[in-house]
């Protein structure tokens, strides 16, 4: 097995072009587990840890450019303000050791339907982009186009993830995850939710309840409709149980979960409805408070 350690991004792209089957490794919290389980024995490993820019983030205008290797612990410490949904998701990942190593780039690389970043990224809006590059050039893949199958993403073999571009939150965001223990657990299912008052949209993300992470499109459209029709963005008035209930049902309907060792499909649907109702309630309560204190 070859161990390749490029020092710069350009070098990394060149190496990846030369060894397209080389397996990138960032935090290694997926890669090493899979090697341990003998899932694969790559011919070469491409270590990205020397490329410092991958573990940096910056805010330009209203967008956070999050380097692929920024670990979860730093997202929690440094980005809870601009990326509250992702930071909440980061809180739920593994243990302190895993949060110190693992990051969003690896989560996207693995593209597991159970990855906790995904629901938060989907909820953060349709204008979230994964920046991937190869010697052939750079592509900005919209988050909605990124997940294409179980543990499959829309990257080409010679591409690497450089960063994720995520709009700075303009409203409250929440993330909930079900696990059968109270820490260090892979999601049975998860739900991300965000209010985007600036453009009058809401964002949803469903995890572990379909072959890929996915958006609850009808739930979003329903809620956006209600918020607009009733002028709730402006008033911040109560949503009412009917709306909350309906939203929960639509989120549930958007999932297509399976029965597996972690939980039944029925439970996943049920829990998604509950999480959808609760996260909507929390975010809306926060939003109303903001509106009222501004008024």
């Amino acid at each position: 097995m070859e161990f390749l350690r490029p020092a710069t991004w350009d070098e990394a792209l060149a190496v990846k072009a030369e060894y397209p089957t080389a397996l990138p490794i960032s935090g290694g919290t997926d890669v090493m587990v899979e090697m341990n389980f003998d899932v694969h024995r790559p011919s070469a490993i491409l270590d990205l840890n020397r490329i410092t820019e991958l573990s940096q983030w910056e805010i330009t205008g209203d967008v956070v450019k999050l380097g692929a290797s920024v670990p979860y612990s730093r997202i929690i410490d440094e980005l809870s303000g601009p990326l509250p949904g992702l930071a909440l998701a980061a809180h739920t990942v593994g243990s302190p050791q895993i949060r110190n190593r693992g990051g969003v780039g690896g989560n996207l690389g693995a593209a597991s339907p159970a990855g906790d970043s995904h629901p938060a990224l989907l909820a953060a809006g349709r204008d979230v982009f994964v920046e991937v590059a190869s010697v052939r050039g750079t592509r900005m893949i919209a988050i909605d186009d990124f997940y294409v199958g179980v543990k499959r993403n829309s990257m080409e073999q010679d591409e690497l993830i450089r960063a994720v571009h995520i709009p700075v939150a303009d409203g409250p965001q929440q993330f909930s995850k079900i696990g059968t223990r109270n820490a260090m657990v892979i999601a049975v299912c998860a739900f991300g939710f965000a209010l985007h008052p600036k453009n009058g949209t809401v964002g949803t993300g469903i995890g572990s309840a379909a072959p890929t992470p996915r958006r609850a499109v009808e739930a979003e459209e329903y809620l956006q409709g209600v918020l607009a029709e009733r002028g709730l963005w402006e008033s911040g008035d109560l949503l009412g149980t009917e709306v909350i209930q309906k939203f929960g049902e639509l989120v549930k309907a958007a999932a297509s979960p399976i029965d597996d060792v972690r939980g039944t499909a029925d439970y996943r649907r049920h829990a998604l409805a509950v999480m959808a109702r609760r996260t909507l309630t929390w975010t809306w309560n926060d939003y109303s408070k903001q509106i009222r204190s501004a008024a």
Binding site: H91, T92, S176, N182, V185, V274, R278, W282
Partner: peptide
């Protein structure tokens, strides 16, 4: 939140 069911998975703020 660490002391309630779900803990940091953030499933409840006291509900249920």
């Amino acid at each position: 939140i660490r002391q309630i069911p779900g803990a940091l998975s953030n499933t409840s703020h006291g509900e249920g």
